[in-house]
Each structure stands twice: as structure tokens, then as C-alpha cells.
Computed example of a mutant assay.
Amino acid sequence: MNQTTIANVSSSQATRAALQQARIAIVSANWHSDVVHQARDAAVRRLTALGAAPARLHQVEVPGAFEIPLMAQKLAASGQFDAVIGCAVIVNGGIYHHEFVSAAVVDGLMRVQLDTGVPVFSVALTPHNFQPTEDLLGFFRCHFVHKGEEAADACAQTLAAHADIDALLTQAVAA
């Protein structure tokens, strides 16, 4: 994911203009919601700070990470959203289940954006040796705030880039 600072993103008039009209869905898993919602809430705060209208940011919850790609596909295919962000924590519980789930989620999200043309961003993370102790939960909560901000920055920049390319392609057709 593109790791930028808010200063770099907010300096762009194109970014602000793209976000003002954009409808963005944020799909978050309820599994470990105390951690996952940190990313969701941070993404909302950052998108709003960058110029997105709060009423155009829509939050959807699903049970776990595995359910995110299908919901992202439904939202993207509706034609009502300009971008989708998926947020989840996929726990390494000592068996290899997390590897299959992680791959399925990321592959599914990539397929959604390629099939629909709607940008999709992932904050579906698999922390190494996740343990639900208070110290580690505190660390992961802070980490997910940072990742939510990064997803918002990438979303904003991508929407601006798409707007620029759409304008370029429209000019090319008119010429």
C-alpha cells in the first residue's frame, strides 16, 4: 500500500476535488472488532480530513475477513460507490488456516477491483503470532490506526489519479 503523509496527500487540489464527490464504502469484520474498528475509524477520520463528505462514507460490517470480498463485490458492482476499503485482522491461531484465509481475502479483493473497475483497498492484516494480551492488543490497535490512515491516503490518491486519467481519456476522444 502507498505509504504517504497527510501533508503530501492534502496538498493536491485534485485529491480534494475527487474526494468531495466520492462515495466510499468501508467494510469491516467484526472478528476482533476492538482492533479492526481502529483502522475503520482512522480511515474515516483521514478521508474526512482530506475533504470527503462524511455523509458519503458508508460503513458496513460483516462477521469476518472471509466475508469481505463478496460484500466488496456487491458494493462495487452496484455502481453506487467509487471505492471500497476492507478492514480485518486474520489471526494466526497456530494452524495454517490464516494463510488460506489471507490469500483468499486479498485475491478476492483484487478480483473485485479488476472485475468492476472500482478501486478496492485492503487493511486485512495477519499479525505474526497474534496473542490477545492487553499489551499486544494495545500495539495492534495503534498499528491498525496507522494502517487505516494509509488506506485512506491510498484511496484518496487513487481516486484523484482515476479522475485525472478519465479527464485525459475524455480529451483524447474529443481530439
Rank of each mutant, 00 (worst) to 15 (best):
R46V: 15
L47Q: 12
L50G: 13
G51K: 10
P54K: 11
P54C: 10
A55N: 15
R56L: 14
H58D: 08
E61Q: 13
E61C: 11
P63H: 12
G64C: 10
I68A: 06
I68Y: 01
P69W: 01
L70I: 01
M71V: 15
A77Y: 01
S78G: 12
S78V: 13
G79H: 05
G79S: 10
F81A: 03
A83T: 10
V84L: 02
I85Y: 02
I85V: 12
I85F: 01
V89D: 05
V91H: 04
N92C: 05
H97T: 14
E99M: 00
F100I: 12
S102V: 06
S102D: 11
A104I: 04
A104M: 08
V105N: 04
G108R: 01
L109T: 08
M110R: 08
M110K: 03
R111P: 09
V112C: 03
V112T: 15
L114A: 12
L114H: 10
V118F: 02
V120R: 02
F121L: 09
S122Q: 05
V123K: 09
A124F: 01
H128S: 01
F130C: 08
L136P: 01
L137P: 00
C142H: 12
V145C: 11
K147E: 14
G148C: 14
G148L: 07
E149K: 04
A152I: 11
A152W: 08
A154L: 07
C155S: 10
A156W: 09
T158P: 00
L159Q: 06
L159P: 10
A161N: 06
L168V: 15
L168N: 13
L169S: 13
T170N: 13
Q171F: 05
Q171M: 14
